[in-house]
Design a protein around this nucleic acid. Structure first.
Lengths: 229, 229
DNA sequence: CTACAGTCTACTGTTAACAATCCATCGAAC
DNA sequence: GTTCGATGGATTGTTAACAGTAGACTGTAG
């Protein structure tokens, strides 16, 4: 068997820029609705406008940014209707992903999932932050999508990933039972995959996403609007 | 009711360039696997490399082009595994679209669908080309996705649309029964939507996509490989 | 005070020149 | 002959200057 070592994509300025801006948005340093001015960003990051523009288009593709011709880019709002769109699409994608994972994933594909669960357990609850859980959550599902061996599906997921991350960061409390059920749910999913029990795995992830959406809806409706205007 | 006249997005050079290159690929003027050289395209289209680059990234997003850092872009191949990916993802998307259409589409959203069916009937069979049917087919489904009022779903569809179009163009025959069933299938779908019969509409479009995939598979397996190397 | 037209500024869209990278070619060493 | 490393040309990544647009601002008329 040929070792499948892929050509490592060189990192290019646009990549760094996109990471920086994404991080600034996710960390809240740039707030929802705020304009992204190319010159300004170029100055801050000591880079010309070319890579900035490309990065902005990429972030638009990720749904973090809205771009209008001749009017510039602004950080996207996330309303409750957006949550509806995001989670309904996510549900369809994760179902398909799960089918493919059960069918095609090798043990090597599943190793990262184990690693994430292990990492989760190794972190003392006291030092577990909302952000940390969100990262592990996204990483877990990302690994799942990778394990599906379905390039186009993975790219559709990429267009949603950051937006989901935003929602995961919204809640600020970290109830103890949430952490327990987080581990139970995810390791349960992994177990079903290892059993290659496609039907139940799909049903289970469907339920998983729906539950997440339910919690989010509840939070959005009672709490403040999703993001400040 | 406020007239929902949206701000019309100004067309910008990148848009024209993307259209030109897309058309060149779809019409076969640039063949699968061929390189897209920025300078060359810039010269041909009398435009600088900036818009060319953006257009290439957009086409990559549409799946028509593969881009590698420092190595340039080439027209994507479509193999039988790609067909698998494309149609499985398409199936998931169209199901979700159909759900939303049955739930949310207004009569105004459905008018374009009527128009397409009417147009189909108005074209004499003798002058019906493979390309023409393919366009009507894509337009029909595009209108369906629009009617779903689900921005993110629509964008996921956009990332697939051109690739599906490529497949539709592959077959060269146009059997008479294909044309009859084309009309029957599509008008049947529209009828179910008008009845707001979500369950059957979803089942029906699912079948519709699966059948299309079946025909494609058959063609790919017996005929030549999907595209010349 | 409100509505409208003209100007002005800040910003995006576009261009062309510059820098860095890849890959094919060639030659030398083994 | 084959493998390895250097050289050069072709092509992409990056930059900075130029061109055009949208929206704010001013002033004027009603």
């Amino acid at each position: 068997m040929t070792p499948p070592l892929e050509r490592r994509q060189r990192r290019v300025l646009t990549d760094d820029v996109a990471d920086s801006i994404r991080e600034a948005i996710l960390s809240g340093r740039i707030k929802s609705g705020e304009r992204l001015i190319e010159d300004e960003l170029a100055e801050n990051l000591s880079v010309s406008r070319g890579p900035i523009r490309q990065a902005i288009f990429r972030l638009q593709q990720e749904g973090l940014v809205v771009h209008e011709t001749h009017r510039g880019a602004t950080v996207a709002h996330v309303s409750i209707e957006d949550a509806d769109e995001i989670y309904s699409l996510r549900r369809a994608l994760e179902r398909l992903a799960m089918e493919n994972v059960c069918l095609k994933a090798t043990e090597a594909d599943l190793a990262p999932l184990d690693a994430i669960l292990l990492l989760f357990q190794s972190i003392p609850r006291a030092s577990m932050t909302r952000r940390r859980v969100a990262e592990l959550d996204i990483d877990f599902h990302d690994a799942l999508f990778r394990a599906a061996h379905h390039g186009r599906l993975y790219r559709a997921w990429e267009a949603l990933r950051s937006q989901i991350f935003v929602f995961l960061l919204l809640r600020d409390g970290l109830p103890d039972d949430y952490l327990t059920s987080w581990y139970r749910d995810h390791s349960g999913l992994l177990k079903l995959v290892r059993d290659r029990d496609t039907a139940r795995a799909v049903a289970s992830i469907d339920e998983h996403i729906q539950a997440a959406y339910g919690r989010l809806r509840e939070h959005l409706q009672q709490g403040a609007p999703a993001a400040a205007e």
